[in-house]
Amino acid sequence: MTRAMRSRVMIAVSVTAMTLLFLQPRLALAGEGSRPTSVNVSPTLESAADTFAYIRWTTRNPRGTILHYGIVHYGTDPSHMDWMAVSPNRINLAHSDEVFRVSMDDLQPDTTYYYTISSTQADGTPDPVTSAVQQFKTRSTNEASAGR
């Protein structure tokens, strides 16, 4: 197997591992006790094209590790938001507020998506942030251009 092939395989394994091993157990553990009260934020659609979109939200600086992961749980059915987009964001300890942005790729054109957001520290510790279910629609392919 070539390195490129192995790398592609690793990518697939890694996404699975990150989802199941890294994030979910931590999220589950966090619900058991010491987790601070979550703050509800209002994420917005920053931009959408035919196959990708950006979600952003602003929250109080969550502190903890400098490296954080912004997370968008999404799907085409608001009761089954089973997919997840994860983007690394670095926080600045001198900021009182932080902007999180998540890149959602491989979307279907002309489709309505429902989503909620969350974020974690680099070690998987969840940040105390949640949102209500939001929605957006991707552009149709023939009107696609840059994600503005």
């Binding site: 070539t2 092939m5 592609r8 395989v9 394994v13 996404v15 199941l20 091993l21």
Partner: peptide, 24 residues
């Protein structure tokens, strides 16, 4: 430790090995 990974990883392995071979 995480047996759930097997099915997901093996599925991904099969799909991506084929895809990667074609791509290569």
């Amino acid at each position: 430790t995480f047996p759930l990974l097997w099915s997901a990883a093996l599925t991904a392995l099969a799909i991506l090995t084929v895809a990667a071979t074609v791509a290569a």
